[in-house]
Nucleic acid binder design. Structure first.
Length: 295
DNA sequence: AAATAGGGCAACCGCCTAGCT
DNA sequence: TAGCTAGGCGGTTGCCCTATT
């Protein structure tokens, strides 16, 4: 299963890069607005394998910082932001690929209950997983859940019970709390969820961006009090798999010593392309000086 | 076999913050 | 202190693939 999805992911990416428009002109409406963020002459859209290889090369030279500089020096017609994103979400050697495992899922649920939609924070506890990946996973999951609940409520007009404390006082700004309450609903209180929770989740997620930062502190306070009521639920989950989870995840950072995937070759196309990792080990300082002199 | 729907995911956008001058 | 810049983050979009009809 995992192998299948991993292969699919890799294949998908490779073929996508080849098949998508190579001029990088994303045809989406999102990028065609009057507010042009990407400077003229800059590429957008899917990365090619050549660009990937180039980026990996220059990240190895200069490190994971100064992305604008790196973008310029590398000759990639990409913004620094784009380079950083590509590296962090796809090219980083410590990334894991494949489906989210059951253990990871449990951890995500737990962390989401704790932190809300702070994906980067959640990702820090899942070595090799990116915030983008977790975010996508969560989105898919909530979508499925919403569909399931809608179907359930359509087929049955039975009374709908709510999950008490969390959903009740849900302000628009408490998107994380709403989302988490629906998760709890699905996992532990299957079938008893109200659709309001899911609708609220979607609405909250769309407005959360603008309000997120302003209400961070408040949210966390709300969430913490909210989830105290769910302690029993989380304790049950934790007890079921505490030992395994502890040994598996209690490592900070990608490719930690305790991580089973540590040391495995990264499966990205570029790393397959340049299979010998030592290939990248060159004299950074010397090359850096040369580059500066040349530019 | 063709059409369609849904899922998965890469990549973008806009906003925010930290650090520097 | 104000302004600027780079980097980081969360939300959103849209394309490709796969499963289903």
């Amino acid at each position: 299963m995992d192998q299948r999805s991993m292969a699919a992911a890799t294949m998908s990416m490779c073929s996508r890069n080849k098949q998508k428009k190579q001029d990088g002109e994303r045809s989406s409406s999102s990028s065609s607005g009057s507010h042009q963020q990407v400077p003229a002459g800059m590429r957008k859209g899917p990365w090619t394998e050549e660009e990937d290889a180039q980026l990996v090369w220059f990240v190895r030279l200069f490190g994971e910082r100064r992305w604008d500089f790196l973008a310029k020096v590398s000759g990639l017609r990409r913004t620094g932001k784009s380079c950083r994103l590509r590296w962090v979400n796809y090219l980083h050697p410590g990334l894991r690929r494949g489906r989210i495992t059951a253990d990871e899922e449990r951890l995500i649920l737990e962390l989401h209950a704790q932190y809300g939609s702070r994906w980067s924070r959640i990702a820090r506890s899942l070595p090799g997983r990116t915030d983008n990946e977790i975010k996508n996973y969560w989105r898919t999951r909530t979508r499925k859940q919403k569909a399931a609940n809608t179907a359930a409520s359509a087929s049955s007009s039975s009374t709908v019970t709510t999950t008490a404390s969390c959903s009740g006082g849900g302000s628009p700004s408490s998107g994380g709390a709403a989302a988490s309450s629906s998760v709890v609903t699905e996992s532990a209180l299957r079938g008893s969820a109200g659709d309001e929770d899911d609708a609220e989740l979607d609405e909250a997620s769309t407005t959360a961006a603008s309000q997120h930062h302003h209400h961070h502190q408040q949210k966390q306070q709300e969430e913490s009090s909210c989830y105290n009521a769910m302690d029993q639920f989380w304790n049950e989950i934790a007890a079921a798999d505490a030992a395994a989870a502890a040994s598996y995840y209690m490592v900070d950072g990608w490719g930690g010593a305790g991580h089973p995937a540590a040391g495995e070759p990264p499966p990205s196309p570029v790393w397959e392309y340049c299979s010998d990792y030592t290939l990248w080990r060159i004299d950074d300082e010397e090359y850096y000086k040369k580059m500066l002199d040349a530019s």
